[in-house]
Design a binder for these strands. Sequence first.
DNA 1: CGACTTTGACCCGCGC
DNA 2: GCGCGGGTCAAAGTCG
Length: 173
Amino acid sequence: MNDNSGELFSYSSSSTSSAAATTSSSYLSLNMVSNNNNHANYDHVVMDHVSPSNDTPSRRGGVDTTSEKINMRRPEKKIKKPKHAFQTRSQVDILDDGYRWRKYGQKAVKNNKFPRNYYRCTHQGCNVKKQVQRLTNDDGVVVTTYEGVHTHPIEKSTDNFENILTQMQIYSR
DNA sequence: CGACTTTGACCCGCGC
DNA sequence: GCGCGGGTCAAAGTCG
């Protein structure tokens, strides 16, 4: 199974790999097509596999107000989940990738004027997380970081981002 | 009524 | 050892 420890997939910006090139191309096309209602002005997409240092400290920032102890913050081993950052040029922060996300937090980043939004997949058993952040330099660029892999079919019939994600998963195997 | 967003508080890791 | 920054949770509120 996902035995990809570290890099999930290598994305060559040199466009040497036909697979990578195809993927990015499809992504652009799909986005434009699927977002025909909202501005959808995606201009550029940059895929970047984020550092192997993804660790998931497993520290539940749980607000155990009343609990005096409860130090059982997931003694499990560091489950290194694959983290992928997508840089998309769009006017909207929320990209419709077909999955249903629930916002669970918002934090202001020091180096950015715009706050960072944290989303989590609402599907049961699917702990895929994603964080969206807008660049302070270019307010038209949105960086979406995905953490984890969806293990369930998509809800919406949109074949946009989901396609790419699926392909990525396939390539990573 | 259900699902989702908002917002403040809490916790942890790391740097100094 | 302390402080900062980042990440998460939970209660209340909002919307369809």
